[in-house]
C-alpha cells in the first residue's frame, strides 16, 4: 500500500494510503486518509477488514498508533469500516468513532464494542490540537446518512464516495487527477448509478463551491486539486443521476 503526502505543514498533515497491491482482486481499492495534528490524529474511512493488514503496515511507518484518538466513517458501507473491530483494538482505548447518527446500531454489526460519537444530520466540528475539522452533511450522496470532512487550515476536503473513481488495474499511478476529461470515464458509471437525489447533489455542490479548497480526495480513485475541483463540481452538477430507476421499466419489474 502506498502513502501519499497530500498536505504537510509542521505536524499538520494529510496522508492518503491507497493503491494496495496486496489486496484480493475481488475487492475495490480504497483510499484511507489520516490527518495528523499536534493534538493527535484522525483516521478517515479506515477501510474493510481485508485491507487492515496492509493499511496497518503502511500506517505505522508514518503515524504512531498511540496518537490516533478519532476514527471517522463517511457512511456505513463495509469498504469504509468493516475492519473497525481491529482498529478499535490497535488504537488507544477510548478512541471515538464518528459516524452519522443513523448508523451506530447498524455499524455495530462490524463491532459491538465500538464507542460511537454519532454525528447529527446538520454536521459537527471537532478540534485536534488547534486544528478544527468540520463534518459536512453529504446525505443521499450516496448514503442517506453521509458526511464529508473539511479542514479549513489545510483547505482540504475528504468527500467519501463523492468524486470516487473505479480505476482499471494497472501500473503505479499518481494520486492526483492529471487529465480531468479522461478521468471522467472512471467516475461516470459510479456516480450515475449510486447517486439518486438531484436535490441533494445540487445542495452538496453549492455547499462545497463556497469552501476555500486546494484539494479534495474521495474514498476511491484519484484526488482533485486546483482547477480540477471546479471541473468536478461542474461535471457533477450536469450529470444525469439515479439511472438505477431505469430498472423499474425492465422486464423483471413489469412481471
Amino acid at each position: 500500500m502506498k502513502c501519499y503526502k497530500l498536505f504537510a505543514r509542521g505536524e499538520h498533515r494529510w496522508l492518503a494510503f491507497t493503491q494496495d497491491e496486496h489486496k484480493p482482486g475481488s475487492i475495490v481499492d480504497t483510499n484511507q486518509v489520516v490527518i495528523t495534528t499536534s493534538g493527535g490524529a484522525i483516521l478517515l474511512d479506515p477501510g474493510g477488514i481485508e485491507v487492515f493488514p496492509a493499511m496497518m503496515g503502511a500506517l505505522v511507518h508514518e503515524v504512531d498508533l498511540e496518537t490516533i484518538g478519532h476514527i471517522f466513517l463517511s457512511h456505513q458501507d463495509p469498504d469504509v469500516g468493516s475492519g473497525l473491530a481491529l482498529w478499535r483494538q490497535v488504537t488507544r482505548p477510548g478512541t471515538l468513532v464518528h459516524i452519522s447518527a443513523l448508523w451506530p446500531s447498524y455499524v455495530s454489526h462490524f463491532d459491538a464494542d465500538t464507542k460511537f460519537a454519532p454525528i447529527p444530520d446538520e454536521g459537527a466540528e471537532i478540534t485536534l490540537g488547534g486544528t478544527t475539522l468540520r463534518f459536512l452533511p453529504s446525505h443521499y450522496m450516496h448514503s442517506p446518512g453521509a458526511f464529508s470532512v473539511y479542514d479549513p487550515a489545510a483547505r482540504a476536503l475528504f468527500s467519501g464516495d463523492i468524486g470516487a473513481a473505479i480505476l482499471p488495474d494497472g501500473p503505479t499511478r499518481d494520486v492526483w487527477v492529471s487529465d480531468f476529461n479522461s478521468h471522467v470515464q472512471y467516475m461516470s458509471g459510479f456516480h450515475r448509478r449510486v447517486l439518486a437525489s438531484r436535490e441533494a447533489r445540487d445542495a452538496w455542490v453549492e455547499m462545497v463551491a463556497r469552501l476555500p479548497l486546494d484539494f479534495m480526495i474521495p474514498q476511491h480513485g484519484l484526488a482533485f486539486r486546483g482547477q480540477d475541483i471546479q471541473r468536478f463540481l461542474d461535471w457533477l452538477s450536469g450529470l444525469d443521476i439515479g439511472c438505477g430507476v431505469d430498472a423499474y421499466r425492465g422486464r423483471a419489474a413489469r412481471g
Binding site: M56, G57, A58, V60, H61, L65, L86
Partner: peptide, 25 residues
Amino acid sequence: QLEEAAVHVDIADISPSGQSALDVL
C-alpha cells in the same frame, strides 16, 4: 488479519514505531 498485519509491519519497518506497532499487535 493480525498476523498478516505483523508481516506487513515487519516488511515495512523495523524502526521504533514499527516495534511499538508489533507490540500492540
